[in-house]
Nucleic acid binder design. Structure first.
Length: 822
RNA sequence: GCCCGAGUGGCGGAAUUGGUAUACGCGCACGACUUAAAAUCGUGUCUCGUAAGGGAUGUGGGUUCGACCCCCACCUCGGGCACCA
């Protein structure tokens, strides 16, 4: 590497910017605001590869331009350091997780600092800081102490629900609640014990306690969320991290009633400036479907089976009914099932299966008939058999279906295997038949309530206490944060309980031993950046009113069904409570593509193909790394790294550096001026659209033009430095100040292009004969159509091609093309 | 299986969204500078053809004066969901 000394220059300016607080965000209320955010990372400890900074560089380019455009830019960085990755790292290295986090943050910051990112580090947040998680706990309590009112379509305080119960019971209430809720009157409510009241309220709370079959990982000693599980090569479920086997286990859990927000999470997507791709993923995940709930009476019993179907129009073709093996009806004793033993055996067998086995649709259908009972098709009064089968899921719809083998492939497979009738009946109107048989139209979602508990040490303690009678009390704000106690061993107990269950003082106080999952702290951190040191509230009203929402959010698309959904849920909730004034937190979302290794695979230690940004910065400089990563290709596209190609970006910067010798206090020639102003326009618009690769290529064209010129006007060159500054902040600052500027280039105002200077009076256009380009003509842009056509027809080459042919038609598209049809 | 997205030189990719396909960069070849190399600069570089000219945007068809762009069918790759009734 020749030419300028990037090491010297970059270090010098990074220090200077930090000393002079060039990137300091002003307080709320000062000027027009712009909130540009990166998804904050897990400081995992393995260090960065060149793919990690790509998103950070993109958002940095954007933030830098906005700052120069005069916005008060909030562009912070922080750490999401609770959760499995940090804990696993700590376990492997036999150190306390807190220590591990500190170390990893240090590594991370060193690696980031040399890239020249314009964060305001004074706003740094860390989810594991008690001053931070105080508010995570507080938000949890707010959610816990709320219920969802379907009529007002918003969350409300639990106290308001209690008042309703005291006045009228829950007879008429329309709320989102667990579906086994019983109806009671005001009088009954009054007579319930404290415990009974607690149990009822728990069915309404937006954060609630319950039991569930969970994905249990014995090796890790923890429960995993569905998105933390992957399928290995043999088709078994294993943990994403570590690849340990995962099985089913029933366990006490805390949940978040995210399903209450399903419809809002869906409709809220509409106005967001996100890629259709991510919207699609969230839509599928929420999985809304309209259908009917219809009751099938059980013959000779006072019981019925409620089924959910989206095809009520096929009701006449329903030839049997299937229950999920977990369906509560099956264990009812009054049900005169004659083959109970067989049924029990099947249910046991299904229990042992993992989700993976059960939901594999290549699997052959299995099931058992409930002998001795029949259901009655309400459409025609016909008796139909009742089966249980594992292809029906207890957790979706009503846990029971009507089977229409004629119209449903799964039902047909099942019917064929067990010799059940497949009949073709005419279709009817879905709504009419639903009404007629006394069913109702309902909406169902695939999305489930989210488990909000981990049997782990390294997470936010859940700020609740259980007394000996099982009465739960919530901590008050003044008692927060409830800090994690120090423990002798933070390793998994292996019994399924959190290490906190082994801390005597903790258990004696009755504190909850579960901790919060990794996504708790990351579901609201963007609000904390607005006012990161506030001790009285998660952020002041002034701050949240001013910063309001994230204008541009940059991060990986792997968070589509996790973080991006949970954050929207919490933000919507906080909006309902009146704490913030916007429902949706992320107005515009950009998902940077991955950088793959040169071999086209993911970068990983395992493949030994990792490229470390430290080496690139050391060999080529941060400016080169930045320019190259933005130039490689479209920002949202995944691309392989090329060790060969990066030299082009370095050459570009070297050229810029050399050009300064040509800079004189003169006016540039007109042609150069024209290219410059076109480039300013292009770069400004491209950065706005995150078309960062073409922004750079247009600047390369400008530089090539500048090389041809004998001298370059100083004013013009400075404008060029300014538009390059977001991409290559160090070298541009160096030359800027060499040219006599005293203030940082990054505090200068973004140049404006001169409209006058970018119009071309003359333009070369192609002349086609029958759609093939045969000639080029130089025309005046405003030349009348007739004259252009005349010019085209008189061109020598055109004359050659028109020989012996008669012109049928001539098409002229202004300033673009002439097409002569013969 | 269903739902998205994408297929353009040796390589990464451009193309004002229907108007001169292959910008910009890498690589490669030749040349200049140099004792030499590196660096730098210049010229060339889709393909067949000596040329005139022909053919090319995954494949085949269609619409249009004109198609990388719109429509139909198919192939390949990437992603999401996956027995959700």
């Amino acid at each position: 590497m020749k030419n300028y000394d990037h090491k010297k220059i970059e270090k010098k300016w990074q220090k200077e910017w930090s000393n002079k607080k060039v990137y300091k965000t002003l307080d709320a209320g000062k000027g027009k605001k712009m909130y540009v955010l990166d998804m904050f990372p897990y400081p995992s400890g393995v260090g960065l590869h060149v793919g990690h900074p790509r998103g950070y560089i993109g958002s940095d380019v954007y933030a830098r331009m906005k700052r120069m455009e005069g916005y008060n830019v909030l562009h912070p960085m922080g750490y999401d350091a609770f959760g499995l990755p940090a804990e696993q790292y700590a376990l492997q290295h036999k150190i306390h997780p807190r220590k591990a986090v500190e170390e990893n943050v240090k590594t991370f910051e060193r690696q980031l600092s040399i890239i020249g990112l314009s964060y305001d580090w004074s706003r740094k947040v860390n989810t594991t800081d008690p001053k931070y998680y105080k508010w995570t706990q507080w938000i949890f309590l707010e959610i816990y102490n709320s219920w969802y009112d379907n009529l007002e379509d918003k969350a409300r305080k639990i106290n308001e629900l209690i008042s309703i119960f005291e006045k009228s019971g829950n007879e008429k209430i329309n709320a989102v609640c667990s579906n086994d809720t019983k109806i009671f009157s005001a009088k009954e409510w009054k007579d319930f014990s404290v415990r009974e009241k607690q149990d009822i309220l728990m069915k309404y709370r937006l954060a609630f306690e319950g039991y569930s079959e969970v994905n249990w990982c014995p090796q890790m000693g923890t429960v995993l969320a569905n998105d933390e599980i992957v399928t290995d090569a043999k088709g078994n479920s294993v943990s994403e991290r570590g690849g340990y086997p995962v099985e089913k286990k029933s366990m006490r859990q805390w949940f978040m009633r995210i399903t209450a927000y399903a419809d809002r999470l869906l409709s809220g997507l509409e106005d967001l400036d996100w890629s259709d791709h991510i919207k699609e993923i969230q839509k599928n995940w929420i999985g809304k479907s309209q259908g009917s709930e219809i009751e099938f009476k059980i013959k000779n019993h006072d019981l019925n089976i409620k089924v959910f179907t989206t095809r009520a129009d096929t009701l006449f073709g329903a030839t049997y009914v299937v229950l999920a093996p977990e369906h509560p009806l099956i264990i009812k004793e009054q049900l005169l099932i004659t083959n109970r033993e067989e049924v029990k055996k099947y249910v046991e067998k299904v229990k042992k299966e993992t989700d993976e086995d059960r939901t594999n649709n290549d699997k052959e259908k299995t099931g058992v008939e409930l002998k001795g009972i029949k259901a009655i098709n309400p459409a025609n009064g016909e008796e139909v058999p009742v089966w249980i089968a594992d292809y029906v899921l207890a957790t979706y719809g009503t846990g029971a279906i009507m089977a229409v083998p004629m119209h449903d492939e799964r039902d047909r497979d099942f019917a064929k295997k067990f010799g059940l009738p497949i009949i073709d009946k005419p279709l009817v109107d879905a709504k009419e038949i639903t009404d007629k048989v006394g069913g109702k139209i309902v909406t169902k979602y695939k999305m489930r309530d989210a488990i909000f508990a981990r049997q782990r040490y390294w997470g936010e303690p859940i700020p609740l206490k259980h007394d000996k009678e099982g009465i739960i009390t919530d901590l008050k704000l003044k008692d927060l944060p409830l800090e994690l106690p120090t423990v002798k061993s933070y390793e998994a107990t292996g019994t399924g309980e959190s290490p906190l269950a082994g801390v005597k003082s903790w258990v004696k106080e009755g504190y909850e031993t579960n901790t919060m999952p990794g996504w708790a702290g990351s579901s609201w951190y963007f609000l904390r950046y607005m006012d990161p040191t506030n001790g009285k509230f998660f952020a002041s009203k002034k701050a949240t009113d001013y910063w309001n929402e994230i204008d541009v959010y940059v991060g990986g698309q792997e968070h589509a069904t996790g973080h991006l959904l949970y954050s929207r849920f919490w933000n919507n909730f906080l909006y309902d409570m009146g704490y913030i004034k916007t429902k949706e937190p992320f107005k515009k979302l950009k998902n940077q593509g991955m950088i793959l290794a040169t071999d086209g695979r993911k970068m990983s230690k395992r493949w030994n193909n990792v490229i470390n940004p430290d080496d690139i910065v050391s060999n080529y400089g941060a400016d080169t790394l930045r320019v190259y990563e933005m130039f490689m290709g479209p920002f949202e596209q995944s691309l392989p790294w090329s060790t060969e190609s990066i030299i082009g970006s370095r050459r570009f910067i070297d050229k810029v550096d050399r050009l300064k010798d040509k800079v004189k206090k003169v006016k540039s020639n007109e042609a150069l001026e024209k290219v410059l102003h076109k480039t300013i326009k292009k770069v400004t618009e491209d950065i706005e659209d995150f078309a960062l690769n073409t922004a750079i290529s247009s600047m390369m064209i400008l530089v090539n033009e500048m090389e041809k010129a004998t001298d370059i006007g100083e004013k013009d060159f400075k404008m060029f430095l300014q538009i390059l500054a977001p991409f290559a902040p160090h070298i541009t600052e160096e030359i800027w100040q060499e040219l006599g500027e005293k203030k940082s280039i990054h505090k200068s105002s973004w140049p404006k292009w001169d409209k006058e200077k970018i119009v071309d009076e003359t333009v070369t256009i192609g002349v086609q004969v029958n759609g093939k380009v045969r000639a080029e003509i130089l025309i005046d842009k405003e030349m009348p159509e007739e004259k252009v056509k005349e010019l085209a027809l008189n061109d020598q080459k055109v004359i050659f091609w028109l020989e012996n042919k008669s012109v049928k038609r001539i098409i002229y598209v202004k300033g673009r093309i002439v097409n002569i049809v013969v």
